[in-house]
Structure formats: structure tokens, C-alpha cells
């Protein structure tokens, strides 16, 4: 018997195969035991990996649930194009929960300064109620942030979508408790045990296509609070901010008004893997304005029903 994956031992598996097997198991548990699951798909790299795992988990059957995008309206056009194309290739239904619609309907009000970060949560919860979803797959990883480090794979949420860190269900072995009463739901994080590097290595291994902004490209940018922000219709520089052209890429893809780029020359996945292996900043620390409000920003948002 020869080693299957070059790791040197008979019947051993590489870390990527182990993580993939665990994530597939989690997805199948949800579909077997929950009534109405959906998968949060933003066109970002973590949700792309998650969608690939969903494709594998049910093959040769199609993915047996719709995907949903909470659309802040502040998008990178390349990401929306990619989202629509990928969904069409897979033949899955796309539900768009639009923050703009919710503003127009008066469900939420834009914060001063135009940030739509906090108002995503009521829009998400509104869609969960409308479609009666009882399980929502999210691409969050425990290495991202310390509130996430303590969250379960099956994260119970009450009728208001709230996470109660003091009242989590014990989670042992690979036995997940998805039981809910009407109106309650479970947020499920199949990539909980993946790190940013694992995600990139998996993208390389699976040759997954990503929106082009993940690779180094020239872009008009300006600096705000030390972060490199793109000039887009939703994120214009203020008077004192100087616009210049730089070679950048994105480590995460979120709301264009809040997500910063990093200087990079990496134009292939391999080059990105090499960069990620030696990087000294967390991906949220480097690029996410939404986590900078306070040390406990993520914890607070999760308690309100955020992913």
C-alpha cells in the first residue's frame, strides 16, 4: 500500500483532506436533520470554498439548498459578476437580501457616514423570517477573531438571531445538536477549523476561480486610518486624502466602503499562498474597518444576530 497523499504513512490524510472530510460531514448533517437550510454566498473566498464543499458533499446530486447574499449595495462589480456566474454554473437558486430595498421600505436607516455594516443584521434576520430558514451556513473561521474562537460549529440563535456566548450547547465528537423550536435557527460554520492559509491552499489544490480583485492589480487608492482604500462610487476620498495608483489585492471581500486592500505583487494563487505564509497581520486586522470600532466589535455584532 503506497501513501495516498504523500504524507508518509499508510492510511493517513493530509490536513486539507481531513478538513474537507469534516466540512462535508457537517454539511450532510445539516441537510439530513434541518428543514430549510441556506448558504450565505457573497462571492468572497471563504464562501467560494464553502460552495465547493457543498458541491462535493451531495455529488452527483445538485446542491440541495438555495444560496443567499446579503447585499449592502456597496459592491465591487467584479464580485457581483462572479457571484452571478458561479450560481448559474451550479444551477442553484440565489436569494438576494438587499439592504437598499430595506432602506427604501423603511426597515432600516442608513447610519450617518453611509456605513451599512450594522444594518446588514436586520436585513439578514428579515430574510431568515421571510423564507423560514432554520439553518444558515456561514464561511466564518475560528482563527479570524477571538469571539469566533469560542463559537460552536452549530451555533444556536434565538428568535432574534442572537448569539449567547454564555449559553452555548456543548459540542462533542462529531455529534451536532441542530434541534430548534419554531423561529429559532442554527448558524453553521463548516470551515470553523480552517485557517486563512488552509483556505488558500485549498483554492490552489482545487483550482478554484476567484473574483479578479483577489489578485494583484493596479488600482486608484487613498489612505484612510492607515488602510489602503479603493476609489469606488461608494468609497470616495475626502478632501485631504490623496489619490494614487498602487499595485494591490484584497485579502477579504466585503462592503466596498469598509474593506481595505493590501499592497501586493501576487498574481497567482501560489504567490498568494507564499505571501500568506509569511504575513504578520491577521486578515481582519489588515483590512476590515468594521472590526476596528472596539476590541469587542465582533462579539457585540454577533450578539445582535450578525454572522
Amino acid at each position: 500500500m503506497t501513501p495516498l497523499d504523500g504524507s508518509g504513512f499508510e492510511y493517513s490524510m493530509s490536513q486539507l483532506s481531513l478538513l474537507e472530510a469534516e466540512s462535508i460531514h457537517i454539511m450532510r448533517e445539516v441537510v439530513a436533520e434541518m428543514q430549510r437550510p441556506t448558504l450565505l454566498f457573497s462571492g468572497g473566498k471563504d464562501s467560494i470554498v464553502m460552495l465547493r464543499i457543498a458541491e462535493k458533499a451531495f455529488w452527483p446530486a445538485p446542491i440541495p439548498f438555495p444560496v443567499m447574499h446579503v447585499d449592502t449595495g456597496h459592491n465591487f462589480p467584479e464580485v457581483l459578476d462572479f457571484r452571478d456566474r458561479r450560481v448559474q454554473e451550479l444551477g442553484v437558486q440565489l436569494i438576494v437580501a438587499s439592504v437598499q430595498d430595506a432602506i427604501d421600505r423603511g426597515l432600516v436607516r442608513e447610519e450617518p457616514g453611509g456605513s451599512r455594516n450594522r444594518i446588514q443584521t436586520p436585513v439578514l434576520l428579515d430574510a431568515v423570517e421571510k423564507y423560514r430558514f432554520d439553518a444558515l451556513f456561514g464561511g466564518a473561521r475560528r482563527d479570524e477573531e477571538k469571539a469566533r474562537a469560542k463559537e460552536r460549529v452549530f451555533s444556536f440563535r434565538d428568535e432574534f438571531g442572537q448569539w449567547d456566548p454564555k449559553n452555548q450547547r456543548p459540542e462533542l465528537w462529531s455529534l451536532y445538536n441542530g434541534r430548534v423550536f419554531q423561529g429559532e435557527s442554527i448558524r453553521v460554520f463548516p470551515l470553523s477549523n480552517w485557517t486563512e492559509l488552509d483556505v488558500w491552499q485549498y483554492i490552489e489544490h482545487e483550482q478554484l476561480e476567484l473574483p479578479p480583485i483577489y489578485y494583484a492589480h493596479e488600482r486608484e487608492v487613498y489612505l484612510r486610518h492607515g488602510m489602503v482604500m479603493a476609489v469606488t462610487e461608494h468609497s470616495l476620498p475626502r478632501d485631504h486624502e490623496t489619490v494614487f495608483t498602487a499595485l494591490v489585492r484584497y485579502r477579504t471581500v466585503g462592503d466596498a466602503t469598509l474593506t481595505a486592500a493590501v499592497y501586493s505583487e501576487a498574481v497567482t494563487v501560489r504567490q498568494i499562498v507564499d505571501e500568506v505564509s509569511v504575513t504578520r497581520l491577521t486578515e481582519r486586522g489588515a483590512t476590515r474597518g468594521d472590526d476596528k470600532f472596539s476590541e469587542a466589535a465582533m462579539e457585540d455584532r454577533k450578539k445582535e444576530g450578525y454572522f
Binding site: 475560528r142 482563527d143 477571538k146 454564555k166 456543548p170 492559509l197
Partner: peptide, 22 residues
């Protein structure tokens, strides 16, 4: 490895935290 604000405020420790290195 310090925990959540909810833990610091209430002086309690909320179960298992998972951490990663390679």
C-alpha cells in the same frame, strides 16, 4: 488567549476556545 468581554466583565470563563498554528 484572553477571552471575550462578556467573560472579563463577569469574571467567568466560557468553555473551550479553539486555536490554530502550524
Amino acid at each position: 488567549t484572553d477571552g471575550l468581554r462578556a467573560e472579563r466583565e463577569q469574571g467567568i470563563t466560557i468553555d473551550v476556545a479553539y486555536r490554530y498554528f502550524a
